[in-house]
Simulated scan of single mutants.
Amino acid sequence: MSGSTFGSVRPPRRPPVAPALSRSELDRDYLSRLGGVPALLDDPSTRLLVLHEGRALGTAEGALALVDPSQLEVDPDAAVFLGRARAASADLDQGAAVLALVVSEKEAARLGEQGTWLDLRRVGALLTPRDAGLFAQALALANWHSTAAFSSATGEPTTVTQAGWVRVDPSTGRESYPRTDPAVIVAILDADDRILLGSNVAWPERRFSLLAGFVEPGESLESAIVREMFEESGLVVEDPEYRGSQPWPFPASLMLGFEARVAAGQPTEPQPDGTELRELRWFTREELAAEVAAGRVLLPGPASIARAIIEDWFGAAIEEPR
């Protein structure tokens, strides 16, 4: 006997949320990393995703602009192999490689005359699945390279191998790999199915979102949820239910989304920590819709997993005033 309160009948499983940046249509093809960037640049079908100051070169229509490498002087050690196209499209052959490249101010100015520079937070939900996945991956890798140029052990400049996926300390041979920092983000619900949203001190006062925090070393996701939610709100939660995940390359997070309930018999009056959060509020669905429509509450952007989880709880897309 399992001890489950549902006996032998498993409760229906809700489908996970589908955040905008969790989408991808790229074959990462790790074996091609071993051949290095020069071999990939020799292939005339290869294209570049160009980055500058955290933004990607885009077309006038708002898609990613994939550039022929012949238009740029490409340092093989500065380019990172992202993967290969699973299907052909107007701008990319099936099986063609895509590399990410961070360019200088001068090159950015020249390329910007041919298109526009895209911000992932603003356009992530508008991009195709292929472009959303490419942009998130490229930005995360570029952020890692910007902080990994020197060995943490010896301070010496590291060398790049495996098409941008490994950096090596030349003195010790120690390898370092792209970093991903897991963080939990949680919709806290009460017995009346209200949702708790908080306003961070770094945001405009009307901005509200879910509570979130990083997973600490040696900590499970479930333990991180209980700890972080108590630290930020003073509430004790239980029964965390996984709802989905999303990369958030600002600079290197993986957001793991959950719902959790206030534990039975525990207080439900939230207490902002005063350091990160200025305000915490419970909302019914009707209250949240009315506050958003009146412009008194601003929700997280459509590219975020926070918005996806809030709208999953709400049961529909939440319309905002224009």
Rank of each mutant, 00 (worst) to 15 (best):
D193W: 05
F214N: 13
I225G: 00
A65L: 13
W117A: 06
A264W: 06
L111Q: 06
V297L: 12
R33K: 11
S253W: 09
V201G: 07
E53H: 08
Y242V: 06
R122Y: 08
S176A: 10
L48M: 09
V103I: 09
P44E: 14
E269P: 07
L101Q: 00
E156R: 08
T46L: 04
M229G: 01
L34R: 08
L118R: 00
R28C: 09
F81R: 02
R110W: 10
G124A: 13
V17M: 03
A18D: 10
R207Q: 14
E216K: 13
W203L: 07
A132Y: 06
N143L: 09
P302E: 15
A96E: 05
V160L: 02
E276R: 15
W144K: 01
V74N: 03
I185M: 04
A125M: 08
P321G: 13
R278H: 12
R86H: 04
R243G: 02
A316K: 05
D190M: 07
G213W: 12
L189Y: 01
D273S: 07
L31K: 06
T161R: 04
R307Y: 04
T161D: 01
D119A: 14
P76M: 07
P240V: 01
T147N: 08
D312S: 03
W144G: 02
D192H: 11
W117N: 05
T154A: 14
P204R: 14
E113G: 12
A96S: 08
R296S: 12
S32P: 02
L280I: 03
V262G: 01
S8A: 15
G83F: 01
D192G: 10
L196S: 01
D131S: 08
R261E: 04
G234K: 02
A317M: 08
R14M: 07
G164R: 02
E105R: 15
L51E: 02
Y242P: 03
G155S: 10
T158Q: 02
L211H: 03
G155E: 06
P19C: 08
A140M: 06
E219I: 15
A39T: 07
G35M: 09
R285F: 07
L66K: 01
R10C: 12
T154Y: 13
D312G: 00
L57A: 05
Q266Y: 04
V102S: 01
G115F: 07
W203V: 05
A56E: 04
T284P: 04
E216A: 15
R243A: 00
A39I: 05
D190A: 06
L235P: 02
D131Y: 05
L49R: 00
A153Y: 11
V98D: 00
G301N: 10
Q246G: 11
L134C: 04
W144R: 05
